[in-house]
Each structure stands twice: as structure tokens, then as C-alpha cells.
Amino acid sequence: MDIQEFDRVYNDHKELVWRLVTRYVAGQQDREDLFQEVFLKIHQALPKFRGESALETWLYRITVNTAINYVKKQQRYRLFHQLLAGLRFEEAIPTSDVEATNLLKPLEKLNPRQRTVLLLADVEERKLEEIGAMLRLPVGTVKSNLSRAREIIKKELKRNGGL
């Protein structure tokens, strides 16, 4: 692969990827790990990128999919450690970034698709058609996921007194 091409993608989109990554995981170490994972995937996949979609759409797709998998992996890992802590084999993992964790907590009530749609539509302010292209979903599905996600978050905020 042309190393200059990867350098260009990295330099032009590192902030975008970082921004997305921070909305999926809390804690600097986890964020940096996920950031690296995303760019390793991009490094692997860039030679196969044929430009069927816009580069940014493609990057969003890779970032979002990698983030979803990372969160799932993290949840399994935390569950395992909570189980061990419950059995008093070890201490529970402390969460380093409390503020960020609290902010991301309501998002954990959403399924991966709802979470992604909400982040892309309301936080990243992307158009529904664009999100559809990123996630390979019909616009109708994006819309229904978005309204359901908003409902769940509002309910969650009400329950927790607005955070």
C-alpha cells in the first residue's frame, strides 16, 4: 500500500476518528486503544477501497463498526471481572474518567444500531440519507431507530434527574 496515502488519510481524519471514539468509550487508555484499532483496520482495508462511497462515509463505517465491537468486547470483559470481584478473586476495575462514564451511561441503554444512529444524527449532525449509506440501512429504518433512541434517552435522563 502507498504509505503516503495512509499518511494523508491519517492526517486528514484523525480528529474525526478521535471525536467518534470518545463517544463510544470513556477513559483515555480505552480511547487510545480503540483509536489505534480503527486506524489499523483502515490501514488493512485502504488498498481495497475502490471509492464506491465517499472516503468519509467509508471511514465513518469502519470507525463505528470497530467501536461497536470494542464496546461489546469491553462489556464482556467487565462482566467477567465483576463476576470475579463478586467471588472475591479480585478487585472490581475502577473507572478512571467518572464524568465521561456518566455521560456515556445513558447510551448504554441503546442497542448498537440505535446508539450509532443517535450519535451520527444528533451529535455529528449527519443527514439521514448519509447515515443510511454509512450503515447500509434504508432511510426509514434510520428514522425509526433515531426516534426510538431519543425516546429511550429522554426516559433515562428523566429517571436519573437529567444527569
Binding site: 471525536r19 470518545t22 480511547r31 486506524f39 490501514h43 465521561a100 455521560l103 434517552i153 429522554k154 444527569l163
Partner: peptide, 28 residues
């Protein structure tokens, strides 16, 4: 409440040391 929450999510978080991460990515 919802708008306030979304604004909180929109706040950008200081970026990492991109050069260091670039070197790690290249090694891996």
C-alpha cells in the same frame, strides 16, 4: 434535558498525542 445532554456529548475532548499513536500504529 435532552438538548443539554446532546450538547454535553458534542463537547470535544482534547486529542491524544497523534504523533505517538501514529508511530504505534505503524509498528503494529
Amino acid at each position: 434535558d435532552y438538548n443539554g445532554y446532546v450538547s454535553g456529548l458534542k463537547k470535544s475532548i482534547a486529542g491524544p498525542d497523534y504523533d505517538r499513536l501514529y508511530r504505534v500504529i505503524q509498528t503494529k
